[in-house]
Amino acid sequence: MTTPADSSALQVRGLWKIFGPKAERLIGTPDAALSRAELQRKSGHVIGVRDVSFDVAPGEVFVVMGLSGSGKSTLVRLLTRLIEPTAGTVVLDGQELTAMDDAALRQVRRDKISMVFQHFGLLPHRKVIDNVAFGLEIRGDNKTNRRARAQNMINLVGLSGYEQNFPDQLSGGMQQRVGLARALAGDPAVLMFDEPFSALDPLIRRDMQKEVIRLHDEVGKTMVFITHDLDEALKLGDRILIMRDGEIVQIGQPDEIIGAPADDYVRDFVADVNKAHVLTLRWVMRPPSSDLEGVGAPTLNQSTIVRTAARTVLAHQGVVRVVDDAGSFVGVVDDEDILRVVVAEQDHE
């Protein structure tokens, strides 16, 4: 949030999408301020995305989360102009996507952005390796290069040995690995994920989430990740954008979302979350009554997750001291504070 705009990987300003004829005329009129339902009743137009602005830092995993119909899938498509925005700008790596002609846009799509789709979007008539090499083929790489590159990607996602299979011979999880490899093959600056794991069953989903984390650690790409699954968002996101009815409700780091929900909608949303897994000590500590409180007790960083901290805190009689990154003393926690989070959890279960 503090990232300066010119060094961000992706910069979005005032992005709108209104479906319906001559929608661009609505922007700036009072009608644009109407709620989704009202506008639809009044003119038949449907608001997909309303006035969205955000920045994504290089290497960041930026998660967009919302329920179905919240506009998140539309948003991700606006970012690459798979759907044309009604208004607003998208700047990628300093280039304004929204101002490009078709050819320039095509070039950006070939080189800078890749997308992973919910239903994988694999071509059934191509073998795994040819699916992975598909984007390279399109941008005109020669055959030896693209084969070699595709093979690397296949190895990277752990599908070695399946190169000559056809997509329908693979399980869902493996198919999405192919989708991942295809997206990575072009060595893009930004990876977009459109609910990539929602079609997979829970166990596989967890594997794939781990896979994304691992890949992110290995290749360090900037990622925009769309999901409707809060746990997934919390697990993957450096920052999370919560959408409702096409609008931004809140942007923040996972613990901010849980610790300080912007409104009742978000609060409701996060109510069932395993807070102990997300909240850091910062959100449960209380200010020290004096600089000396708990002297001699163990010290923990304020960004320690509650679950991790629990053993230390519970093992120790009395309060535990909490410090910030600079090492200065910012607060204390005791058994009570920890148990409140953990027990609340069990109540829910």
């Binding site: 498509r77 095509r106 070039q107 239903h119 979007g121 399109i138």
Partner: peptide
């Protein structure tokens, strides 16, 4: 399927491709 077309578009295909 629309997804396939989207995939193609997102990879920067021309119409002919």
């Amino acid at each position: 399927p629309a997804t396939m077309i989207e995939v193609a578009d997102s990879l920067g295909q021309t119409r002919w491709q």
